[in-house]
Protein backbone atom coordinates (compact mmCIF):
# COMPACT_ATOMS: atom_id res chain seq x y z
CA UNK A 1 0.00 0.00 0.00
CA UNK A 2 1.35 3.38 -0.93
CA UNK A 3 0.13 6.57 0.66
CA UNK A 4 0.42 10.21 -0.18
CA UNK A 5 1.50 12.58 2.47
CA UNK A 6 -1.31 13.46 4.82
CA UNK A 7 -2.81 16.90 4.39
CA UNK A 8 -4.54 18.36 7.42
CA UNK A 9 -6.73 21.31 8.29
CA UNK A 10 -7.07 22.60 11.84
CA UNK A 11 -10.66 23.44 12.73
CA UNK A 12 -11.10 26.42 15.01
CA UNK A 13 -13.32 28.90 13.18
CA UNK A 14 -16.34 28.28 11.00
CA UNK A 15 -14.25 29.38 8.02
CA UNK A 16 -12.03 26.34 8.60
CA UNK A 17 -14.94 24.12 7.57
CA UNK A 18 -14.73 25.64 4.10
CA UNK A 19 -10.97 25.13 4.03
CA UNK A 20 -11.43 21.48 4.97
CA UNK A 21 -14.00 20.99 2.23
CA UNK A 22 -11.72 22.61 -0.30
CA UNK A 23 -8.70 20.52 0.64
CA UNK A 24 -10.75 17.31 0.82
CA UNK A 25 -12.24 17.97 -2.59
CA UNK A 26 -8.79 18.51 -4.11
CA UNK A 27 -7.59 15.20 -2.64
CA UNK A 28 -10.76 13.48 -3.89
CA UNK A 29 -10.24 14.91 -7.36
CA UNK A 30 -6.67 13.67 -7.40
CA UNK A 31 -7.82 10.24 -6.30
CA UNK A 32 -10.10 10.13 -9.34
CA UNK A 33 -13.58 10.59 -7.87
CA UNK A 34 -16.41 11.75 -10.15
CA UNK A 35 -18.49 14.89 -9.61
CA UNK A 36 -21.23 13.27 -7.53
CA UNK A 37 -18.83 11.50 -5.19
CA UNK A 38 -16.72 14.65 -4.83
CA UNK A 39 -19.85 16.44 -3.68
CA UNK A 40 -20.61 13.61 -1.25
CA UNK A 41 -17.11 13.69 0.15
CA UNK A 42 -17.33 17.46 0.62
CA UNK A 43 -20.61 17.05 2.48
CA UNK A 44 -19.16 14.34 4.73
CA UNK A 45 -16.19 16.59 5.50
CA UNK A 46 -18.55 19.45 6.31
CA UNK A 47 -20.38 17.32 8.86
CA UNK A 48 -17.18 16.10 10.50
CA UNK A 49 -15.71 19.60 10.60
CA UNK A 50 -18.93 21.14 11.92
CA UNK A 51 -18.96 18.64 14.77
CA UNK A 52 -15.47 19.73 15.75
CA UNK A 53 -16.36 23.41 15.35
CA UNK A 54 -19.62 23.22 17.32
CA UNK A 55 -18.88 20.76 20.08
CA UNK A 56 -15.16 20.88 20.84
CA UNK A 57 -12.45 23.40 21.53
CA UNK A 58 -10.66 22.40 18.39
CA UNK A 59 -9.41 19.52 16.35
CA UNK A 60 -8.27 18.64 12.90
CA UNK A 61 -9.25 16.85 9.75
CA UNK A 62 -6.67 14.95 7.72
CA UNK A 63 -7.01 13.49 4.25
CA UNK A 64 -4.97 11.04 2.32
CA UNK A 65 -5.27 9.03 -0.83
CA UNK A 66 -5.32 5.30 -0.31
CA UNK A 67 -4.00 3.37 -3.26
CA UNK A 68 -3.64 -0.37 -2.93
CA UNK A 69 -3.65 -2.98 -5.65
CA UNK A 70 -7.42 -3.50 -5.70
CA UNK A 71 -8.79 -0.05 -5.18
CA UNK A 72 -8.22 3.63 -4.79
CA UNK A 73 -9.90 5.90 -2.35
CA UNK A 74 -9.77 8.68 0.18
CA UNK A 75 -9.35 8.43 3.91
CA UNK A 76 -10.75 11.18 6.11
CA UNK A 77 -9.59 11.31 9.69
CA UNK A 78 -11.20 13.57 12.24
CA UNK A 79 -9.46 14.02 15.59
CA UNK A 80 -10.51 16.31 18.41
CA UNK A 81 -9.75 16.84 22.08
CA UNK A 82 -13.37 17.57 22.95
CA UNK A 83 -15.61 16.19 25.67
CA UNK A 84 -16.03 12.86 23.89
CA UNK A 85 -19.26 11.11 23.08
CA UNK A 86 -20.76 9.18 25.94
CA UNK A 87 -23.38 7.22 24.04
CA UNK A 88 -22.12 6.50 20.54
CA UNK A 89 -25.11 4.27 19.71
CA UNK A 90 -27.37 7.22 20.34
CA UNK A 91 -25.54 9.65 18.06
CA UNK A 92 -25.40 6.98 15.38
CA UNK A 93 -29.17 6.58 15.50
CA UNK A 94 -31.19 7.95 12.60
CA UNK A 95 -33.09 11.08 13.41
CA UNK A 96 -31.08 11.86 16.56
CA UNK A 97 -29.32 14.94 15.24
CA UNK A 98 -31.44 15.63 12.17
CA UNK A 99 -34.60 16.16 14.20
CA UNK A 100 -33.21 19.43 15.49
CA UNK A 101 -32.33 20.51 11.97
CA UNK A 102 -28.62 20.26 12.73
CA UNK A 103 -27.81 18.51 9.49
CA UNK A 104 -27.03 15.03 8.34
CA UNK A 105 -25.16 14.12 11.51
CA UNK A 106 -22.88 11.15 11.87
CA UNK A 107 -25.36 8.65 10.40
CA UNK A 108 -25.39 10.91 7.33
CA UNK A 109 -21.59 10.78 7.12
CA UNK A 110 -21.73 7.01 7.43
CA UNK A 111 -24.15 6.84 4.51
CA UNK A 112 -21.92 9.03 2.33
CA UNK A 113 -18.84 6.85 2.73
CA UNK A 114 -17.93 3.17 2.44
CA UNK A 115 -16.20 2.62 5.76
CA UNK A 116 -16.83 4.41 8.99
CA UNK A 117 -15.22 3.93 12.37
CA UNK A 118 -15.60 5.97 15.52
CA UNK A 119 -13.80 5.84 18.84
CA UNK A 120 -14.45 8.16 21.70
CA UNK A 121 -13.37 8.50 25.28
CA UNK A 122 -15.14 10.73 27.72
CA UNK A 123 -13.05 13.76 28.57
CA UNK A 124 -10.37 12.87 26.03
CA UNK A 125 -11.89 13.29 22.63
CA UNK A 126 -13.19 11.58 19.55
CA UNK A 127 -11.55 10.01 16.54
CA UNK A 128 -13.50 9.25 13.42
CA UNK A 129 -12.12 7.55 10.36
CA UNK A 130 -14.12 7.50 7.14
CA UNK A 131 -13.05 5.90 3.87
CA UNK A 132 -14.62 6.16 0.46
CA UNK A 133 -13.56 4.13 -2.56
CA UNK A 134 -13.54 5.24 -6.17
CA UNK A 135 -16.23 3.30 -8.03
Amino acid sequence: MTMDLQSCVTIEKEWDIVKARQLGREVAQKAGFGTVDQARIATAISELARNIYLYTDGGKLCFEIIDNVEQKGISMLSVDNGPGIEDISQVMEDGYSTSGGLGAGLPGVKRLVDQFDIQSEKGKGTEIRAVKWVR
Binding site: T35, A39, T43, D94, G95, G103, A104, R111, L112
Partner: peptide, 21 residues
Protein backbone atom coordinates in the same frame (compact mmCIF):
# COMPACT_ATOMS: atom_id res chain seq x y z
CA UNK B 1 -25.73 22.37 -12.82
CA UNK B 2 -22.82 21.43 -10.62
CA UNK B 3 -24.08 23.93 -8.09
CA UNK B 4 -27.50 22.28 -8.18
CA UNK B 5 -25.91 18.87 -7.71
CA UNK B 6 -24.11 20.02 -4.57
CA UNK B 7 -27.35 21.27 -3.07
CA UNK B 8 -28.91 17.87 -3.62
CA UNK B 9 -26.44 15.84 -1.53
CA UNK B 10 -28.12 16.57 1.80
CA UNK B 11 -31.50 15.81 0.29
CA UNK B 12 -30.06 12.48 -0.75
CA UNK B 13 -29.05 11.70 2.82
CA UNK B 14 -32.45 12.76 4.12
CA UNK B 15 -34.05 10.52 1.52
CA UNK B 16 -31.98 7.54 2.60
CA UNK B 17 -32.73 8.20 6.23
CA UNK B 18 -36.42 8.33 5.45
CA UNK B 19 -36.09 5.03 3.66
CA UNK B 20 -34.41 3.39 6.65
CA UNK B 21 -36.94 4.78 9.10
Amino acid sequence: MKFLLETMISYGIAHQEYHTL
